[in-house]
Design a protein around this nucleic acid. Structure first.
Length: 267
DNA sequence: ACACGTGTTATGCG
DNA sequence: TCGCATAACACGTG
């Protein structure tokens, strides 16, 4: 399930296998995934064009389209995956985070598809349908990308308000790209309780959070996903902190299940 | 049967 | 209007 690193893999596969191929057909019939567009609206806007550059900011990605066409925005939601098939049906896909839950050629959960003139297809495969495809997606309100933000941008994201620090890390308008697993990893790495209010963070706390964020994002990008991070396997009932062996605590913070070391990250 | 979920967003409240 | 909390969304999985 995608956070920034998985979305970057999806963007890269589009860049590698999806650009410059003439779009001959579009299946935009899933009105939930393609909301607020009407069926056929995305098709009419894209047929005859091709995808240009593939961009990403946080967990949102979008492609330019040729002939001054609209941008095509794709969000993977909780369970989306990009699959690109060549004319011969050979697949390229955007990462292994589905861990074998889908076999090549299984398109039961295809919610959106571009059919190229060469016979290939670009698909959004998404069991839960929380992914989203839309023209000219609004990305201006997103915060700086967690992979490329400056220290000043990160400090600014934490500089005002009273929200729990984890809720702020998850706020895509503050910083774009951090999801639930990445947030737990960052807070564990920086030894900060997820419920700590941002106005109670010291300068040193913020510095540790910045370093932990860079480390976690870079590591997940290099290793292929958030499930490769150190806390993986320790967000479980009965788990003990891999650093000091203390019990891992669990509660909901920022509306999401959160795990932290009951000793190192005590309030 | 039932609770859970790696994301987003509409709604409600102070 | 702002900042924050919560429920809702859809649906497969354990």
């Amino acid at each position: 399930m995608p956070e920034l690193p998985e979305v970057e893999s999806a963007r890269a596969v589009i860049e590698r296998a999806g650009l410059g191929r003439e779009i001959a057909g579009v299946d935009d019939s899933d009105t939930y995934v393609c909301r607020p567009h009407r069926p056929g609206q995305i098709r009419d806007a894209l047929v005859g064009r091709a995808l240009g550059a593939a961009h990403r900011r946080g967990k949102s990605m979008w492609c330019d389209t040729t002939w001054d066409g609209p941008e095509l925005g794709i969000h993977l939601g909780m369970s989306g995956k990009i699959v690109i098939a060549g004319p011969d049906g050979t697949e390229a896909d955007g990462g292994d985070y589905w861990e074998g839950r889908r076999r090549p050629g299984d398109y039961r959960w295809c919610r959106f598809a571009l059919t190229f003139a060469d016979g290939g297809r670009l698909m959004l495969v998404d069991p839960r349908r929380l992914g989203r495809v839309r023209l000219d997606p609004p990305v201006a309100s997103l915060g700086p990308d967690a992979a490329t933000m400056t220290p000043a941008e990160f400090r600014a994201a934490l500089a005002s308000g009273t929200a729990p620090v984890k809720a702020r890390l998850l706020d895509q308008e503050a910083v774009a790209g951090i999801g639930n697993l990445l947030a737990d990893q960052i807070l564990w790495s920086a030894r900060i309780n997820p419920g700590r209010r941002v106005d109670r963070l010291t300068g040193d706390d913020v510095d540790r959070l910045l370093r932990a964020t860079r480390r976690a994002v870079r590591s997940a990008l290099a290793d292929g996903g958030v499930h490769t991070l150190g806390l993986n396997g320790f967000r479980l009932a009965g788990a003990r902190c891999p650093r000091d062996g203390a019990p891992m605590a669990r509660s909901a913070v920022g509306g999401r299940t959160s795990w932290w070391c009951s000793v190192e990250q005590a309030v």
